[in-house]
């Protein structure tokens, strides 16, 4: 009896995670620029994969791989924000932002201009000072 209930819960988690995967695809196709596509694409990378991992862990309860599944979910939670942050930062610098769609532009360009000459801690060590990565 308990086993059947757990199966139903696990299958619910698995299907919910799959729905999030489909939502990620729809968002990737329909959203207008890199940053909003990133918004659509990274939420299922964390939440959808985590839901699927939890569902699989419930189904595989009792085997040693449960901890490996949860470790995979933890790794996604740690690494996806980092890579999403790096991609969105580069997208912003490459003018891949649709400024006409922005409601609030908090990273005002006037403030950033002061940092241009000495960007804090983002240049590769071997970058030429005058024409390298702009910081």
């Amino acid at each position: 009896m308990v086993r059947e209930i757990l199966d139903v819960v696990a299958i619910g988690f698995l299907l919910l995670g799959s729905v999030m995967a489909l939502a990620a695809g729809v968002g990737l196709v329909r959203f207008p620029d890199v940053i909003s596509r990133l918004h659509a694409g990274t939420k299922p990378q964390v939440a959808g994969v985590l839901l699927i991992m939890v569902g699989g862990a419930i189904r595989l309860a009792g085997t040693p791989v449960v901890w490996m599944l949860l470790l995979g979910g933890l790794l996604q939670m740690l690494t996806v924000p980092v890579s999403a942050h790096m991609i969105s930062r580069i997208a912003y610098r490459r003018r891949h932002v649709r400024e006409d769609l922005l409601v609030v532009h908090e990273a005002g360009f006037a403030g950033l201009a002061d940092l241009q000459d000495d960007p804090p801690g983002d240049q590769p060590a071997d970058a030429p000072r005058d024409q390298g990565d702009s910081g």
Binding site: L14, G17, S18, A24, L38, G41, T42, P44, G48, Q76
Partner: peptide, 20 residues
């Protein structure tokens, strides 16, 4: 972005197989 999402979906597919 799309490739990373695709990899996450592949990981989800593998996990769904492992679970089911």
């Amino acid at each position: 972005v799309a490739t990373e999402t695709l990899l996450a979906i592949i990981a989800g597919g593998i996990a769904v197989y492992a679970g089911l």
